[in-house]
């Protein structure tokens, strides 16, 4: 218990600083939102008629189908950038300064992930609002909107290790962004663009274990059908499992700084 309350205390105060760093800089908000928005706009026009294929069921607008995936994709774009903040603090020596404080190592990492949560949630919100303006629906209203933002934020944090581990191990911006590109196939082999039924066999197998799909489906139900706690619970569980593994790897990489 003491360890947990210490963790909460330290993450809170470290998070205030990292969030300040985020809010006081005109961040790369544009570049993060840009790509998913382009996909949303272009693909929804280009593949407009794809919804006539049987796998889409009752869906009549490809834009409505595409929107949840682009919301999740935006959160992942925020992840791809997140290791940069850590690298900047490593280079300036600030990270060492934090390491010399009597605080838990995981608090330092969690503090670095606080702005990622807000960033992923906010960027997802922007894409969501744009898709609503373009005609996508959100049957669960304001409650669903906030839930989608929270899911997107948590989704970003659970994937943070994908950017943090290469940043800590290579200490190179180039390597970090290149390795973060490995996230993209996970989006392509998810239900972001087409339903599982339309995928080749091996992709369906990958898709069954793809955490991105679970999050997209949770967002999709919130947008299209209503509160489906089974889908939301599955999404959260997949984030906890994936997040647990990636955070453990990140902590391991962090301890290597002392070598």
């Amino acid at each position: 218990m003491a360890a947990l309350s210490g963790f909460a205390y330290e993450t809170y105060y470290l998070g205030i600083r990292t969030t300040r760093r985020f809010t006081r800089v005109p961040a790369n908000v544009v570049s993060i939102v840009f790509f998913p928005l382009i996909q949303l706009l272009v693909f929804s026009q280009l593949y407009k008629d794809i919804v006539q294929l049987p796998g889409f069921g009752e869906q009549t607008s490809y834009l409505a189908y595409l929107a949840p995936g682009q919301v999740a994709f935006t959160a992942l774009m925020a992840v791809a950038w997140s290791g940069y903040g850590l690298l900047i603090e490593y280079r300036s020596g600030y990270l060492d300064k934090l390491r010399a404080n009597p605080i838990a190592r995981w608090s330092i990492l969690a503090g670095e992930m606080v702005p990622l949560f807000f960033q992923a949630a906010m960027m997802a919100g922007v894409v969501l609002i744009v898709s609503l303006l373009l005609g996508a629906q959100l049957v669960t209203g304001v409650g669903g909107f906030l839930l989608i933002l929270a899911l997107s934020g948590l989704f970003g944090v659970s994937f943070a290790g994908v950017s943090f581990v290469p940043a800590l191990l290579t200490k190179s911006e180039q390597a970090t962004s290149t390795l973060s590109l490995l996230l993209f196939p996970l989006v392509f082999i998810s239900t972001a663009f087409v339903p599982q039924a339309l995928m080749p066999g091996w992709m369906q197998v990958v898709n069954d274990y793809n955490p991105v799909t679970y999050v997209i489906e949770a967002i999709r139900t919130l947008m299209v059908t209503g509160y489906d706690w089974g889908a939301i619970g599955t999404a959260l569980l997949s984030m906890v499992i994936l997040g647990g593994v990636l955070q453990a790897a990140t902590l391991w990489a962090f301890h290597r700084l002392a070598d």
């Binding site: 300040r20 760093r21 300036s92 600030y94 010399a100």
Partner: peptide
């Protein structure tokens, strides 16, 4: 501890 170059958060 104070390091060789001041390590401060520029945005604080």
């Amino acid at each position: 501890l104070a390091m060789q170059t001041p390590t401060l958060d520029a945005f604080s």
